[in-house]
Write a protein that binds this DNA or RNA. Structure first.
Ligand SMILES: [Mn+2]
Ligand SMILES: [Mn+2]
Ligand SMILES: [Mn+2]
Ligand SMILES: [Mn+2]
Lengths: 220, 220
DNA sequence: AGATTTATTTTGACTAATCAAAATAGACGC
DNA sequence: GCGTCTATTTTGATTAGTCAAAATAAATCT
C-alpha cells in the first residue's frame, strides 16, 4: 500500500498539472507539500523507481498511468469526504479541507463507495471541485473567472478554487458560493479591482487575485 | 500531537487493563500491537519520558492521567466510528473494526462530536463495547458470559468481545447479537461445551472459549 | 561570451518506528 | 541454594521521511 506521504505527493502532482502543464516543476511540488526542495527531489526519485511517476531531472515530474490512478483515488476520497462533512455533518465549508486532508488516507475503497452512494453520487464537492468518477474520469472543463469573464452578463458561480479557511469564510459571508447568480458590473484593470453585483442587488469589490479564484459560467 | 503509533500504544494499554489488572505486562502489550517485545520496551520508555505512562521495569506499564485521557479519546473515536459505519453506512459489523483502526487516528474532535450527535449519543458500539463519554467516563460494568452465567435462566446478550471478522460473522449468522434473547440449556464442562437455546427455539453448541466471548445479563 | 541569479540536486545528519539476536533479571523447580 | 526457563531489556541495523547547507546546472542579464 502507498504510504500517506506517497499519496500526498501523487495527489499534489495531479493537482498541479490540472492547469494543463505537462511537467510539474520540483519547486512547485515542494512548496505545495511544504517540504524543502531537496526532500521533494529525494522522494520523487523513489517514486520514479516505484513506477508511479516520471522524473526528468532539472525539468520536472509527470504521473505514470499507475501514479495517476492512485492520485485520482485519493482525490476522489478527499472530495467525497468534504461533501460528506458539509452535507451530512453540517460542517462549515471553510474547515472541511483540513479534515479531508487526513481522512483521504484513512478510508477504504468500500467506505468510499458507500459514502458516494449515501451522497447520491455527487459530481462536485462543496467548493465546486470536480469529484473523479469511480472509473478515474476527472472533469477538466475550463471556466472563466470573475477576473477574466465578459462583463455585464448574468453569471453563475461554479467553483471556488481556494482552500484557505479565511478566504472561504469571506466568500460565504458575501454569498460567493457555487450556484450563486451575479454579474461583473465593473472591472478596473489599472486599479486591479473587480466589482460584482449579486442577484440580491448587493455590490462587492474584489482584487483581481481574489476574483481569479471564483470560476463562473454564463447564466442560462 | 500524538502520532498514530503513540495513540495505538496508549489505546492498547487501556484495553489490556480493562480486566482490572493494574499493570499491563510488556509481553501482552507487544503481542496486542503485533510488534516484537524489544520494540514495545523501546517505545514504552519513550512514552514514559513523555509522561503518558509509567514503566516499572520487568513488571509492566500503567497509564498516567494524561495517557488515559489520550487513550480514551482514541477509543471513543474508534467505537463511534464503528457505530457510524454500521448504522449509517450499513457496513457489516464484522468488518468495521479494521476500518475504525485507521479512522480513529484521522478524525478531529469536532467530527467526533458531530458523529456523536448524529448517532444520538450512543453508549455502546455495534459489538456492545461501551463508548467512553465526552468527559472521559468509561463504563466498567462486569457481566457474566455464556461460559460462566447461571443456566436455564432467560438472558440477553449485551456484548461480544472479539474483533475477528470470522467470529463476528459466525455470531451474526447464528443470531448472537447484542440484544438477542436466549438461555443456556446445557453446560458440559468436561467436554468444554455450552449449549444455548435462542428465543426462536433454535439450539446451538459453542466451545467454552467461544462462549466466554459472549457477555450476557439476566433478562428483565 | 562571461557573469550572475535561480532552480534543482547532492550530501550528511536526524527522528520515529521497527526487527533480529544477544544479554540479563526474575521466577520456578527441586 | 543452584540451575533452568521465560519474560524483558539491550544492542546494533534498517526503513521512511525529513532538513540544512553545499554543489551544480540552467536560465537570464549585461
Ligand atoms: Mn480540499
Ligand atoms: Mn474541495
Ligand atoms: Mn473495534
Ligand atoms: Mn467494537
Amino acid at each position: 500500500m502507498a504510504t500517506i506521504a506517497v499519496e500526498n505527493y501523487l495527489k499534489h502532482v495531479l493537482l498541479l498539472s490540472e492547469g494543463g502543464a505537462d511537467l510539474v516543476p520540483m519547486g512547485a511540488l515542494a512548496s505545495a507539500l511544504a517540504v524543502v526542495p531537496g526532500t521533494a527531489t529525494t522522494m520523487v526519485k523513489a517514486l520514479a523507481d516505484e513506477g508511479l511517476l516520471e522524473h526528468l531531472p532539472r525539468q520536472g515530474v509527470r504521473l505514470t498511468a499507475e501514479g495517476r490512478r492512485v492520485a485520482l483515488n485519493v482525490l476522489r476520497k478527499h472530495r467525497l469526504v468534504e461533501t460528506f462533512l458539509v452535507h451530512v455533518l453540517k460542517m462549515d465549508w471553510s474547515r472541511v479541507h483540513e479534515e479531508a486532508e487526513q481522512l483521504e488516507h484513512a478510508i477504504s475503497d468500500e467506505v468510499l463507495d458507500r459514502l458516494d452512494a449515501l451522497l447520491g453520487h455527487p459530481q462536485s464537492d462543496p467548493h465546486g471541485d470536480p469529484i473523479p468518477s469511480a472509473h478515474g474520469k476527472l472533469s477538466s472543463q475550463v471556466y472563466a473567472t470573475l477576473a477574466t469573464c465578459v462583463a455585464d452578463r448574468p453569471l453563475r458561480i461554479v467553483r471556488v478554487t481556494e482552500q484557505s479557511a479565511e478566504f472561504l469564510q469571506f466568500a460565504e459571508q458575501n454569498g460567493l458560493l457555487p450556484g450563486a447568480a451575479l454579474r461583473v458590473s465593473d472591472r478596473n484593470l489599472p486599479a486591479g479591482l473587480v466589482t460584482v453585483r449579486r442577484a440580491t442587488g448587493r455590490s462587492l469589490a474584489l482584487s483581481l487575485v481574489a476574483a481569479g479564484k471564483i470560476l463562473v459560467e454564463p447564466e442560462r
